[in-house]
């Protein structure tokens, strides 16, 4: 008996240590904080100091008054990760991105990229950063080619190793004046301008708006390739499919507050609903289980519904109140 009990306890110890390992390891490896662990500042700080190859937003607050602005927003994006930044219009996505770009100075909290302060060291950060603005507005007086030439020289980065490849990939004809370009054309130009110097960090504010489905697809492929090349990518979007296909982690912001922060899988798992149905006979139950993909147990069948990401997002987006 005693021997047996000892064996069990060894197993228990193993399980416990495995859990411990997971708990310690998880935040470091994924470096992503579930909403419920955001409060755990100690853990967060530890993890944040250990990895600086990333975008870190730490308790960023910007109060525009009357409930507008962003409040205590914290998240992190690591290299080789695509972070989907979602939220209704006016929720604070662009405000957060403006802080990361060094356009706005943080009033409280801070944000860093690769350990550099986004406001003080913005010019150093920009060296390794590619940005697609949410509202594309280039120099109307230039043609697309002139603009790309200008940006290359202006950045003192005339090599622009990927320009030709990207122009071909997105079937962009940059000859015409930007003024006369359609929204989608300008968006393509913005994509080329953001990616052509092969940056390590990518901040993409609604990058596929205005693109046709074919080009959206190509863009998603591009993002996936970049992720594999260990780039750090933050992408705001409204397209569920796009997010589902590209992002591994998601932050949902609403009325300036981060309301969800998790990996796509666990976000989905959280919204799994099991139903147990009792049928008259085991045969019927088996047929039912077959038809609805449930687990059969006697004449009881358990079926689970998985909500689509879209529904999950709607859950966060919805509700009344004016989102700002």
């Amino acid at each position: 008996m005693q021997l047996k009990r000892k064996k069990v306890s060894v197993a228990e110890v193993r399980i416990a240590s495995a859990w411990f390992y997971v708990m310690i390891k998880l935040p470091k490896e994924t470096l992503f904080y579930r909403k419920d662990s955001i409060e755990n500042k100690k853990e967060r700080d530890l993890a944040m100091t250990e990895n600086n190859g990333s975008i870190i937003v730490d308790h960023l607050t910007r109060d525009y008054g009357s409930g507008k602005g962003i409040f205590e927003v914290s998240f992190q994006v690591n290299s080789g990760e695509v972070f989907g930044f979602l939220g209704p219009n006016g929720a604070g996505k662009t405000t957060t991105i403006r802080h990361l770009m060094g356009f706005l100075q943080a009033r409280a909290g801070q944000c860093t990229i690769n350990g550099m302060d986004c406001w003080k060291e913005r010019d150093k950060i920009q060296k390794i950063l590619g940005y697609i603005p949410g509202e594309i507005s280039f120099f109307d007086d230039m043609s697309g080619t002139e603009f790309l030439d200008f940006i290359g020289k202006y950045r003192r980065n005339p090599a622009d190793s990927r320009r030709k490849e990207l122009v071909e990939r997105f079937e962009l004809n940059p000859q015409g004046k930007i003024k006369k370009m359609s929204k989608g054309m300008k968006q393509k130009l913005g994509i080329v301008a953001a990616f052509m110097h092969d940056p390590e960090i990518l901040i993409l504010d609604e990058p596929t708006s205005g693109l046709d489905p074919l080009m959206q697809n190509r863009f998603i492929e591009l993002v996936e390739e970049e992720r594999k090349r260990k780039k750090t990518i933050l992408m705001s979007s409204h397209m569920f499919e796009e997010v589902e296909r590209t992002c591994h982690h998601i932050g949902i912001i609403r009325a300036g507050k981060l309301v969800a922060l998790d990996s796509v899988e666990s976000l989905r798992d959280r919204y799994v609903r099991p139903y147990t149905v009792t049928l008259d006979t085991p045969e019927l139950a088996e047929a039912f289980a077959k038809d609805f993909g449930g687990a059969c147990e006697g004449n009881r069948v358990t079926v689970t519904t998985k909500q689509s990401l879209e529904e999950i997002f709607m859950h966060y987006y919805g509700g009344d109140g004016n989102d700002q």
């Binding site: 770009m101 060094g102 356009f103 913005r122 010019d123 150093k124 920009q126 060296k127 950063l129 940005y131 603005p133 509202e135 507005s137 280039f138 120099f139 940006i151 202006y154 950045r155 003192r156 301008a193």
Partner: peptide
């Protein structure tokens, strides 16, 4: 117009 973003999003000091 917002095109200042193109000038700021580059390793050029303000």
């Amino acid at each position: 117009k917002g095109s200042m973003a193109s000038l700021l999003a580059a390793p050029v000091k303000r």
